[in-house]
C-alpha cells in the first residue's frame, strides 16, 4: 500500500500510457469495423470472406504480433505504434462481426418502414440502422476494451512502457507487491473503460430507458 502511494506518480503516468495504447485502438478499430460490418451485410460472400479473415487475424497470439509487426511495417521493435496497430487489428477482428450482427438484428419491419418513408441507403444506415445497433456494438466494445487492457500489459515483455511494467519489473525483482499493484491497476483501468462505454451507450440510446 505504501509502495503504491510512494509510486503514485509513476503509476498514473503508466496508466495514462496504458489507456492510450488500449483506448486509441478501440476508436480506430470501431471506425474501421463500422464500414466493414456494413459491407459484410451487403453480400453473403463478403460476409463469409470478411468474417473468416478477421477471425484468422484474431487467432494470432499478441506477443507474436508485437514481434512480427516491426518486420512487416519496418518500424522499430520498441515503437508503441506496433502495439497500437496490433490492438487495432484485434479490435477490428472482434468488432466487424459485432457490427454486422448489430446491423442485421434491426427489425426488418423497421427497416422497411424507413425505406418506405423515403430514406436513401446511406441516410437509412445513419439514422435508423446504426442507432438501433448501438446496444449490440457497445456490448462488443466492452469485450474489446477489457481484452485490450489485458493484452497491452503483455507488451511490457518486449519493453514497451505501460502498467505491464510493474508486472515484469516486480517479477524480475521478486517483489510481489509491485506485481499486485500492476494487477489491480489493470483491473481498475478495465473497469473505467467498461463504465465509460456503458455511459456513452446509455447517453446515445435514450429510447431503451423508457419502460414500456
Amino acid at each position: 500500500m505504501t509502495w503504491a502511494l510512494d509510486h503514485l506518480d509513476e503509476i498514473l503516468t503508466r496508466a495514462v500510457q496504458h489507456a492510450w495504447l488500449a483506448g486509441l485502438p478501440l476508436v480506430l478499430g470501431l471506425l474501421i469495423a463500422l464500414p466493414l460490418g456494413w459491407l459484410a451485410n451487403r453480400k453473403a460472400w463478403i460476409h463469409g470472406t470478411l468474417l473468416t479473415t478477421t477471425g484468422l487475424l484474431y487467432t494470432i497470439p499478441s506477443l507474436a504480433l508485437f514481434i512480427l509487426l516491426p518486420s512487416i511495417l519496418g518500424t522499430k521493435i520498441l515503437d508503441p505504434v506496433n502495439v497500437i496497430i496490433a490492438m487495432t487489428v484485434y479490435t477490428v477482428a472482434l468488432l466487424t462481426r459485432t457490427v454486422a450482427d448489430g446491423l442485421s438484428a434491426v427489425d426488418p419491419a423497421t427497416r422497411q418502414a424507413a425505406v418506405a418513408m423515403g430514406f436513401g441507403p446511406v441516410a437509412r444506415v445513419r439514422s435508423v440502422d446504426l442507432p438501433l445497433a448501438i446496444p449490440v456494438v457497445a456490448a462488443g466494445l466492452r469485450v474489446a476494451a477489457v481484452s485490450n487492457v489485458s493484452i497491452v500489459s503483455v507488451a511490457s515483455l518486449i519493453g514497451i512502457s505501460q502498467l505491464g511494467y510493474f508486472l515484469t519489473d516486480g517479477y524480475a525483482r521478486t517483489f510481489p507487491t509491485e506485481v499486485w499493484v500492476g494487477i489491480v491497476a489493470c483491473v481498475l483501468l478495465a473497469l473505467v473503460f467498461d463504465l465509460v462505454i456503458l455511459g456513452i451507450a446509455w447517453l446515445l440510446t435514450p429510447w431503451t430507458r423508457v419502460r414500456a
Binding site: 499478441s62 462481426r97 459485432t98 450482427d101 456490448a139 466492452r142 469485450v143 477489457v146 493484452i151 503483455v154
Partner: peptide, 23 residues
C-alpha cells in the same frame, strides 16, 4: 443464425492474455 453468430463473437475472446468482462 444471427443469435448464434452474436453469441460466438462474444464468446471468442482471445489473443494472449485476453480477457472479457462484458456481454
Amino acid at each position: 443464425a444471427t443469435s448464434r453468430a452474436t453469441a460466438d463473437s462474444t464468446l471468442s475472446v482471445g489473443p494472449a492474455g485476453a480477457t472479457a468482462l462484458a456481454g
